[in-house]
């Protein structure tokens, strides 16, 4: 494969940037070129947040993802805003608990994950992002799955070590849906 361009979008607080960092670390550990670019500014504080992640075999030019191969929409405004930008043949992952509509495109594949509901049912409140990540890893073999634990241990900070297990469990849950 050449290059995978990923766009993750949602509300601030849904762990959009964290999920992106996790994917970037997985790529890094596969010895690929990676870049991670967040939206920043006032929108980080409660509004919409998004981040561009690129994982590639070649050196990365622009770190800005304008036509994602993979869109992860964690709320309706994000789907409304980015659905049309997804590259033909790409994939859209949505949190079905928060998004009631399907997609309008017929040249991309949608994966609907009831992530927020699954998270609260299984005691992983706040980890809907990682449940979706599990599904993303399952559906996108190009991302690899050898370094899930290693990447997680990089992105879960020392201070929050106790959250590592629940993050891993959430990813596993999403993977096995």
């Amino acid at each position: 494969m050449g290059t995978t361009q990923i766009l993750i979008a949602g509300f601030g607080g849904q762990g959009v940037l964290f999920a992106g960092k996790f994917l970037a670390y997985m790529g890094l550990m596969e010895d690929k070129q990676v870049s991670w670019l967040p939206s920043y500014g006032p929108e980080m504080r409660g509004g919409t947040a998004n981040c561009s992640v690129i994982i590639s075999d070649e050196s990365i030019g622009s770190p800005i993802v304008s036509a994602p191969d993979i869109l992860i929409a964690m709320n309706l405004p994000s789907l409304d805003k980015y659905e049309s930008s997804v590259a033909s043949g790409g994939m859209i992952f949505i949190d079905g608990t928060l998004i009631s509509r399907g997609i309008e495109r017929n040249d991309v594949k949608m994966h609907n994950i009831d992530a927020t509901k699954l998270a609260s049912q299984n005691g992983y409140s706040g980890l809907s992002n990682m449940i979706i990540m599990g599904k993303v890893i399952k559906e996108c073999p190009a991302l690899g799955n050898a370094y899930v634990e290693a990447a997680l241990s990089k992105v879960v900070s020392e201070r929050h070590r106790n959250l590592y297990d629940s993050n891993l469990a959430a990813v596993t849950l999403g993977y096995n849906i």
Partner: peptide, 10 residues
Amino acid sequence: DGTMGQMMEP
């Protein structure tokens, strides 16, 4: 610039 400052790379 803001992009260089905010982006993460290896």
